[in-house]
Nucleic acid binder design. Structure first.
Lengths: 351, 351
DNA sequence: CTGAAAGCGCTTACAG
DNA sequence: CTGAAAGCGCTTACAG
């Protein structure tokens, strides 16, 4: 005797002695089903360990999910931001037919208003989910609140904003990233050597991640037996001239062995070192983008601590996909690996 | 006037004035279509830039693709091999409903026959594609040939076999991996220091990748200004006793500053260093698995050069998925990143 | 509160 | 060589 078990909903309907429409109703927790019927169906679903077929679901449904992505536009680190976008496109090509529509919204990292105005347009678009690089704190907070009100899910990449709980955060553990640099220093320095930690800042917000890096860095060093002097400075430099004169001055008074740039502008220091022909100073930075890479290649930057930009985008998209389409639970915090990039391994880094 | 364009095949059929069955025939390059009809349909397909809906395709098709994976079973590096399997499972959960069936075949890395016999069972299973870690060269070659005859696609992970062309190879560029270690040595050593490169071998085959690492390592050092003495040795050690007595002897005659273990057994040297209390010798190894990690954590291993095991599995599965289901072209060689893992970044490495 | 029916964009026998 | 029809496992009006 061969009982061919019917597929999903049909089989549930058969067992419960109802129509598939009714099954569908309880499956989606819609109203209009007698309590008793509902319970019966629910228990059958449990019994069968029923898993809906996502293909059939998407094919049958007219519903299109709209996701928006808010990301810094072409700027000096432009190449970097292509990363997440590429990652999203890659994800899209793999999950493409699932009825997803993506819109990209670029803002100027130096222009608070451009961020603000992009959020306004996004709010008008009736998006289901957004991916955002929260460069401006207050504006992001406001945006997040209004998203929540409208039941728009948001995912943060790159950094987080305190007290705001996104569907998911995808980015580094910056404290630990600082420790990684500290650990490298163990090999690069000897007891007594001087270190300069530089925060070359243009943007006013998201300084927090820089602080965390610094804390991790210092914590590691204080635990280790590398007793070196760490000097941490903010340089509010607009261009190379300011950096140069600052460093000229600083280095004339301090015998620095290593400079650690806590944001993505290590290339500025590298340029300085190249201009002056200073080969004896080690340089560690953050961020995988062309300007940094050029100096990594020619040896003026020794190490770059990075996260894969493409992966961030891919995972952010996946978070929304999992939430809306696959209806699976999404991890609240997804720390990305803290990668150590050198002139010898950067080539395969994007893979 | 609102012309609602019909969806894919239907619209093609309408334009070509044929039935969708005929369209389907040319879409799949099947016989039994008049040349003229075929050309007409083909041109319409091109015109529309028609892309089949993969969801509908999989849903309608009864075809189930069967993939087999041939991978070392629990051995001393056991934890490592969970990686690819987890990766495949992860991919499966994302592409699960696409009608794929996976079978796992484990062999003993020390037992050529176990590999051989697994390939035999796999060949009987009428698989569509296989993922294999080609530990034994001749046996793999034989297996690959017979796969080709049966039109079974195969993907290599971890290493390649010369003159055999898989659908895709997913693994490291070992020459470059050796260079990465060389580059690290630049920071860890000073001119004149001695380095010992160790190949602690049990298995007879796949030595090639070790040779390539060594070449890369030496090439880098010879290009750099770190003029150190490199001694490269094979140790055919079965256990700790042999390693210990070998190292006792070697180190009594040489003042080694750094040991580079080219395969995944750095933990054996680390154990030796720990036993002897030798903290002054730096140790670099390969492979992300528990035994190595323990010594990374306690400081006896300084750096591990790794590739993400999970990612390998994921990508290998994806290669087969792309080939069979999405019908997209697959990259012949997919080099994985050469990751530098330390005690401070290993935690987030698996993410 | 419930069900019959059409449809998503394909594939697969089957009939001619 | 070609087409009509059923079906994959769901969703979505619509009717009662």
């Amino acid at each position: 005797m061969k009982i061919v078990e019917l597929s999903g909903v049909k089989e549930i309907a058969r067992r419960a002695n109802v129509s598939i429409a009714t099954v569908d109703r309880v499956l989606h927790n819609r109203t209009g089903v007698a309590q008793k019927t509902k319970e019966k169906i629910l228990s059958i679903i449990k019994d069968m360990d029923y898993k809906p077929n996502i293909l059939a679901k998407r094919l049958a449904s007219k519903r299109i999910y709209k996701f928006g992505i808010l990301i810094p536009q072409e700027c000096s680190e432009a190449e970097y931001w292509n990363g997440p976008v590429s990652g999203i496109k890659e994800a899209l090509s793999e999950f493409g037919d699932f009825g997803v529509e993506i819109s990209y919204h670029f803002f100027d990292k130096k222009d608070r208003d451009s961020f603000k105005s992009q959020t306004e347009t996004m709010l008008k678009m009736q998006l289901d989910g957004v991916i955002v690089v929260p460069v401006f704190i207050d504006e992001t907070r406001d945006f997040a609140m209004r998203c929540s009100e409208r039941r728009v899910q948001f995912v943060f990449i790159e950094s987080e904003i305190p007290q705001i709980s996104p569907l998911s955060y995808i980015g580094q553990d910056y404290y630990q990233a600082g420790r990684v640099v500290g650990n490298l220093c163990q090999y690069l320095l000897r007891p007594g050597d001087d270190v300069l930690v530089l925060n070359i800042s243009k943007a006013p917000d998201i300084q927090e991640s820089l602080q965390e890096k610094l804390m991790g860095f210092e914590a590691f060093l204080s635990e280790s037996d590398v007793h070196c002097k760490v000097d941490s400075l903010d340089v509010d430099a607009k261009g190379m001239d300011e950096i140069s004169s600052f460093l000229d001055h600083y280095l004339s008074e301090n015998s620095v062995k290593l400079i650690y740039v806590t944001n993505s502008r290590a290339y500025m220091v590298a340029k300085y070192l190249e201009d002056r022909g200073f080969k004896h100073i080690r340089l560690v930075g953050n961020g995988y983008h062309d300007k940094n890479l050029n100096y990594l290649k020619n040896g003026y930057i020794d190490f770059l601590i990075c996260q894969k930009p493409l992966e961030q985008g891919y995972k952010a998209f996946l978070a929304l996909y999992e939430h809306f389409i696959a209806k699976r639970k999404v991890e609240r915090t997804q720390y990305t690996p803290i990668d150590i990039v050198t002139k010898e391994n950067y080539k395969y880094y994007e893979n």
